[in-house]
Amino acid sequence: MAAVAAAAETPVIKVAALSGSLRKGSYNRGLLRSAIQISKESINGMQIEYIDISPLPFLNTDLEVDGTYPPVVEAFRQKIAAVDSILFASPEYNYSVTGPLKNAIDWASRPPSVWADKAAAIVSAGEDFGGGRSQYHLRQIGVYLDLHFINKPEFFLNAFQPPSKFDSDGNLTDAETKEKLKQVLLALQAFTLRLQGKC
Protein backbone atom coordinates (compact mmCIF):
# COMPACT_ATOMS: atom_id res chain seq x y z
CA MET A 1 0.00 0.00 0.00
CA ALA A 2 2.85 2.39 0.79
CA ALA A 3 4.38 1.81 -2.63
CA VAL A 4 1.06 2.51 -4.31
CA ALA A 5 0.61 5.70 -2.32
CA ALA A 6 4.13 6.85 -3.18
CA ALA A 7 3.51 6.19 -6.87
CA ALA A 8 0.27 8.15 -6.74
CA GLU A 9 2.06 11.13 -5.21
CA THR A 10 4.80 11.25 -7.88
CA PRO A 11 4.14 14.16 -10.25
CA VAL A 12 3.91 13.01 -13.86
CA ILE A 13 5.75 15.08 -16.43
CA LYS A 14 4.94 14.87 -20.12
CA VAL A 15 7.83 15.00 -22.56
CA ALA A 16 7.74 15.62 -26.30
CA ALA A 17 10.47 13.72 -28.17
CA LEU A 18 11.59 15.30 -31.45
CA SER A 19 14.11 13.88 -33.90
CA GLY A 20 16.01 16.02 -36.37
CA SER A 21 16.36 13.00 -38.65
CA LEU A 22 13.31 11.86 -40.60
CA ARG A 23 14.75 8.51 -41.66
CA LYS A 24 12.95 5.63 -39.89
CA GLY A 25 16.16 3.69 -39.28
CA SER A 26 18.19 6.66 -38.08
CA TYR A 27 20.25 6.26 -34.93
CA ASN A 28 18.80 9.46 -33.50
CA ARG A 29 15.26 8.14 -33.81
CA GLY A 30 16.60 4.96 -32.26
CA LEU A 31 17.76 6.96 -29.24
CA LEU A 32 14.23 8.30 -28.79
CA ARG A 33 12.68 4.84 -29.08
CA SER A 34 15.07 3.66 -26.40
CA ALA A 35 14.26 6.68 -24.22
CA ILE A 36 10.55 5.90 -24.45
CA GLN A 37 11.20 2.28 -23.49
CA ILE A 38 13.43 3.28 -20.57
CA SER A 39 10.84 5.74 -19.26
CA LYS A 40 8.14 3.08 -19.33
CA GLU A 41 10.25 0.40 -17.67
CA SER A 42 12.30 2.21 -15.06
CA ILE A 43 11.35 5.88 -14.55
CA ASN A 44 8.27 6.58 -12.48
CA GLY A 45 6.45 9.81 -13.33
CA MET A 46 7.66 10.40 -16.90
CA GLN A 47 5.64 9.99 -20.10
CA ILE A 48 7.45 10.48 -23.40
CA GLU A 49 5.61 10.86 -26.70
CA TYR A 50 7.43 10.82 -30.02
CA ILE A 51 6.16 13.61 -32.26
CA ASP A 52 6.75 13.21 -35.98
CA ILE A 53 7.83 16.49 -37.60
CA SER A 54 7.94 15.15 -41.16
CA PRO A 55 4.38 16.29 -42.10
CA LEU A 56 5.17 19.95 -41.35
CA PRO A 57 5.37 22.18 -44.44
CA PHE A 58 8.28 24.53 -44.92
CA LEU A 59 7.77 27.65 -42.86
CA ASN A 60 5.91 30.17 -44.98
CA THR A 61 3.97 32.98 -43.36
CA ASP A 62 1.68 33.04 -46.40
CA LEU A 63 0.20 29.88 -44.88
CA GLU A 64 -0.91 31.88 -41.84
CA VAL A 65 -4.44 33.14 -42.39
CA ASP A 66 -6.07 35.56 -39.96
CA GLY A 67 -3.80 34.43 -37.15
CA THR A 68 -4.40 30.73 -37.78
CA TYR A 69 -2.02 28.03 -38.96
CA PRO A 70 -2.44 25.03 -41.26
CA PRO A 71 -4.10 22.14 -39.35
CA VAL A 72 -0.94 20.01 -39.28
CA VAL A 73 1.03 22.94 -37.89
CA GLU A 74 -1.61 23.78 -35.30
CA ALA A 75 -1.75 20.15 -34.19
CA PHE A 76 2.02 20.16 -33.73
CA ARG A 77 1.94 23.43 -31.82
CA GLN A 78 -0.78 22.13 -29.50
CA LYS A 79 1.26 19.02 -28.72
CA ILE A 80 4.27 21.12 -27.79
CA ALA A 81 2.13 23.47 -25.71
CA ALA A 82 0.68 20.55 -23.75
CA VAL A 83 3.97 19.04 -22.54
CA ASP A 84 6.23 19.96 -19.66
CA SER A 85 9.57 19.40 -21.37
CA ILE A 86 11.28 18.50 -24.63
CA LEU A 87 13.75 15.77 -25.53
CA PHE A 88 15.60 16.59 -28.75
CA ALA A 89 17.56 14.02 -30.75
CA SER A 90 19.66 16.34 -32.86
CA PRO A 91 21.93 14.88 -35.55
CA GLU A 92 24.58 17.15 -37.00
CA TYR A 93 24.31 18.33 -40.60
CA ASN A 94 27.11 20.64 -41.77
CA TYR A 95 28.09 21.56 -38.20
CA SER A 96 24.52 22.53 -37.23
CA VAL A 97 20.97 21.35 -36.60
CA THR A 98 19.03 19.76 -39.43
CA GLY A 99 16.63 21.63 -41.68
CA PRO A 100 13.55 19.65 -40.57
CA LEU A 101 14.27 20.28 -36.89
CA LYS A 102 14.87 24.00 -37.41
CA ASN A 103 11.65 24.18 -39.42
CA ALA A 104 9.69 22.56 -36.58
CA ILE A 105 11.27 24.87 -34.04
CA ASP A 106 10.40 27.91 -36.13
CA TRP A 107 6.75 26.89 -36.61
CA ALA A 108 6.29 26.41 -32.87
CA SER A 109 7.95 29.76 -32.20
CA ARG A 110 5.41 31.71 -34.25
CA PRO A 111 3.22 33.87 -32.02
CA PRO A 112 2.34 32.88 -29.46
CA SER A 113 5.46 30.77 -29.00
CA VAL A 114 4.80 27.44 -27.32
CA TRP A 115 8.41 26.78 -26.29
CA ALA A 116 8.85 29.27 -23.46
CA ASP A 117 9.72 28.14 -19.93
CA LYS A 118 9.94 24.44 -20.75
CA ALA A 119 12.83 22.27 -19.66
CA ALA A 120 14.76 20.49 -22.40
CA ALA A 121 17.52 17.98 -23.00
CA ILE A 122 19.49 17.00 -26.09
CA VAL A 123 20.92 13.66 -27.19
CA SER A 124 22.66 12.97 -30.47
CA ALA A 125 24.33 10.19 -32.40
CA GLY A 126 26.70 10.76 -35.27
CA GLU A 127 30.30 10.58 -36.37
CA ASP A 128 33.39 11.82 -34.55
CA PHE A 129 32.01 14.34 -32.03
CA GLY A 130 28.67 12.53 -31.97
CA GLY A 131 26.59 15.50 -33.07
CA GLY A 132 28.00 17.84 -30.45
CA ARG A 133 28.20 20.89 -32.69
CA SER A 134 24.49 20.62 -33.49
CA GLN A 135 23.78 20.51 -29.78
CA TYR A 136 25.62 23.77 -29.16
CA HIS A 137 23.72 25.49 -31.98
CA LEU A 138 20.45 24.17 -30.60
CA ARG A 139 21.33 25.56 -27.19
CA GLN A 140 21.90 28.99 -28.80
CA ILE A 141 18.47 28.80 -30.43
CA GLY A 142 16.99 27.81 -27.08
CA VAL A 143 18.25 31.03 -25.47
CA TYR A 144 15.96 33.08 -27.69
CA LEU A 145 13.07 30.66 -27.25
CA ASP A 146 13.34 30.70 -23.43
CA LEU A 147 13.94 26.95 -23.39
CA HIS A 148 15.88 25.80 -20.33
CA PHE A 149 18.34 23.04 -21.21
CA ILE A 150 19.88 20.75 -18.64
CA ASN A 151 23.65 21.20 -18.58
CA LYS A 152 24.69 17.77 -17.39
CA PRO A 153 24.95 14.99 -18.24
CA GLU A 154 25.83 15.64 -21.86
CA PHE A 155 25.13 12.87 -24.36
CA PHE A 156 27.19 12.66 -27.55
CA LEU A 157 27.37 9.21 -29.13
CA ASN A 158 29.85 8.26 -31.83
CA ALA A 159 27.55 5.79 -33.54
CA PHE A 160 30.05 4.58 -36.12
CA GLN A 161 32.88 3.55 -33.84
CA PRO A 162 32.91 -0.26 -33.51
CA PRO A 163 31.46 -2.25 -31.96
CA SER A 164 28.06 -1.05 -33.20
CA LYS A 165 25.68 0.13 -30.50
CA PHE A 166 22.63 -0.26 -32.77
CA ASP A 167 21.04 -3.13 -34.63
CA SER A 168 20.24 -3.12 -38.36
CA ASP A 169 16.93 -1.33 -37.71
CA GLY A 170 18.55 1.52 -35.80
CA ASN A 171 17.52 0.31 -32.36
CA LEU A 172 19.89 0.99 -29.50
CA THR A 173 21.27 -2.27 -28.10
CA ASP A 174 24.25 -1.23 -25.97
CA ALA A 175 23.52 -1.52 -22.23
CA GLU A 176 26.10 1.08 -21.16
CA THR A 177 24.71 3.64 -23.59
CA LYS A 178 21.17 2.92 -22.41
CA GLU A 179 22.27 3.67 -18.86
CA LYS A 180 23.77 7.00 -19.97
CA LEU A 181 20.53 7.81 -21.72
CA LYS A 182 18.60 6.96 -18.57
CA GLN A 183 20.72 9.43 -16.60
CA VAL A 184 19.82 12.17 -19.09
CA LEU A 185 16.14 11.38 -18.61
CA LEU A 186 16.43 11.43 -14.83
CA ALA A 187 18.20 14.79 -14.98
CA LEU A 188 15.50 16.16 -17.28
CA GLN A 189 12.79 14.92 -14.93
CA ALA A 190 14.43 16.47 -11.87
CA PHE A 191 15.08 19.78 -13.64
CA THR A 192 11.50 19.96 -14.96
CA LEU A 193 10.05 19.42 -11.50
CA ARG A 194 12.42 22.01 -10.06
CA LEU A 195 11.39 24.60 -12.65
CA GLN A 196 7.75 23.89 -11.81
CA GLY A 197 8.40 24.21 -8.09
CA LYS A 198 7.35 20.61 -7.43
CA CYS A 199 10.51 19.43 -5.71
Rank of each mutant, 00 (worst) to 15 (best):
A2S: 07
A6M: 08
A7R: 13
A8E: 13
P11S: 08
I13F: 01
K14I: 00
V15P: 01
S19R: 08
L22T: 09
L22N: 06
R23K: 11
G25H: 09
S26F: 05
Y27M: 03
G30L: 00
G30F: 00
R33P: 00
S34M: 03
A35G: 04
I36Y: 01
I36H: 04
I36C: 12
Q37S: 14
Y50R: 08
I51F: 06
I51M: 07
D52V: 02
D52C: 04
I53P: 01
I53N: 11
P55Y: 06
P57Q: 10
L59W: 06
L59Y: 10
D62M: 11
D62L: 10
D66T: 06
G67S: 09
P71Q: 08
P71H: 10
V72M: 01
E74Y: 04
E74P: 01
A75P: 01
K79P: 04
K79N: 11
A81N: 12
V83D: 14
V83N: 15
F88I: 02
A89Y: 02
A89G: 10
S90P: 00
E92K: 10
E92C: 05
Y95H: 15
Y95W: 14
S96W: 02
G99D: 04
P100H: 10
L101R: 12
N103F: 03
R110F: 01
S113A: 11
S113V: 07
V114E: 14
A116E: 11
A116D: 03
V123F: 04
V123I: 15
S124T: 12
A125T: 09
D128V: 12
F129Y: 13
G130R: 13
G130T: 09
G131Y: 02
G131C: 08
G131L: 10
G132H: 09
R133C: 05
Q135C: 07
H137E: 07
H137S: 09
I141S: 10
V143D: 10
L145A: 12
L147F: 00
L147W: 00
N151K: 13
K152D: 03
F155I: 11
F156T: 11
F156E: 13
F156H: 15
L157A: 07
N158Y: 10
Q161D: 09
P162L: 12
K165G: 06
N171V: 02
T173K: 15
T173M: 10
E176R: 14
T177V: 11
K178S: 13
L181G: 02
L181A: 03
L181E: 00
K182D: 02
K182E: 12
Q183C: 01
V184K: 02
L185R: 07
L186A: 05
A187M: 05
Q189I: 00
Q189F: 05
F191D: 05
F191M: 02
T192R: 08
